[in-house]
Design a protein around this nucleic acid. Structure first.
Lengths: 205, 205
DNA sequence: GCAAGCTATTGTCCATGTGTCAATAGGGTT
DNA sequence: AACCCTATTGACACATGGACAATAGCTTGC
């Protein structure tokens, strides 16, 4: 005989938030498969079935968490002064470093969490995040409206994005690079990519 | 009453290979969690338990597959002519592109398969592969014996490795970059990284 | 204040998947 | 041909995820 379970009835939105918060925490500190729905439910003080009810399933819940962390906040490329490209890029990089430094663990697990394996949904989120990031960079470089070789340009910037992530990881987890190192590297690399490599690729075709 | 199962008794090594081959195929075309041990066993004409017997478990089997695909073949940086760095790097990049083009699907799923989530073992393999790749690049650039700022150098090259993977993916799956584009981009980027960015980072400290 | 209805929440049932292990049988050896 | 070694099997235990009908908390109308 356990004491009668007392239920808390909440607004769906709020309940959703609570579960999401717990999920964020747990997925933040452990792997996808190492976290069970049961655990999330328990930690959230809720029946297991309810998690399914709100999110459809474990995967979808997880994806929701990842999405929220991965989409780069627009603030990174907002209100940039109208000065040189160097300056604008530099500021942009700085703001980026701020963001990942602040939400360190969460960000790390989110990207390290290209995890799960690639199904359509995961892929979709990753792609979406990459596109958003690419937009920000091009915006900072005032190259948003390039049309000749736009496809190639964006592809190269997306690839650069991967280097950016990897370098950030080197900084945050290994400590092999200092924040200053990162700033130099990331700024110079993207400038070189946009001003030298891109034209060279264009000229090649 | 099914006809009595006829067993095939093989040398452990050979059986291991057979199972591994099947696993390679299946993991190549589908996600980790979308492939069951049962399926692998069936496809290999073997009892499920045997897979566990040989590889310990699903994860270990998977890791074995990934390891074999991820460790960059030494051939990429072997027998490079003693000419300019540009030339050597160029050849190296070309060979690399050959490798991934050949084993396309497999390579894609292996890296997209930073999958599973990061446990110690997976991480280990990924790190190992990155180190090997880094060695090759430094060897091609004849910078293997740099000592001042070695840590930072290697970290930057590892980050570059991520861009290389991402760019390769852009080529193979999106087709947003041609092989020629890739060659230009990858060659120039790494040269810039080694000759301009690295010194700049050094100077900064 | 009370009853009734809406729906948030629960607990249970079922399916699938993995790991383990004792029992079985293939194939070489004496 | 009898025997032994071990590759191989099949069944069992256990964990986890998804589905769904039953239940109970809030709110609304009178």
């Amino acid at each position: 005989m356990q004491p009668p379970v007392q239920r808390r009835r909440l607004e769906p939105d709020q309940r959703r938030s609570e579960i999401l918060a717990v999920a964020r925490t747990l997925f933040g500190e452990r792997t996808y498969s190492a976290v069970s729905v049961a655990e999330i439910a328990q930690e959230a003080g809720v029946a297991r079935g309810l998690v399914n009810h709100y999110f459809g399933g474990k995967r979808q819940l997880y994806l929701e968490v990842v999405r929220r962390m991965l989409i780069v906040p627009a603030s990174v490329a907002e209100n940039l002064p109208r000065t040189t490209i160097e300056e604008r890029i530099s500021i942009c990089v700085d703001r980026w470093l701020d963001v990942v430094e602040r939400d360190k663990e969460l960000w790390l697990s989110a990207i390290g969490a290209e995890a799960i394996g690639q199904d359509r949904d995961t892929e979709q989120i990753l792609l979406e995040a990459d596109e958003v990031a690419t937009d920000h960079i091009l915006q900072a470089a005032m190259m948003s409206d390039v049309v000749e070789g736009r496809t190639e340009l964006r592809a190269m910037v997306r690839a650069y994005g991967s280097m950016l992530k990897a370098a950030s990881r080197e900084w945050l987890v290994r400590g092999a690079l200092s924040r200053a190192d990162l700033h130099v590297m990331l700024t110079r690399s993207v400038l070189h990519l946009l001003r030298d490599v891109f034209p060279a690729v264009r000229a090649d075709s």
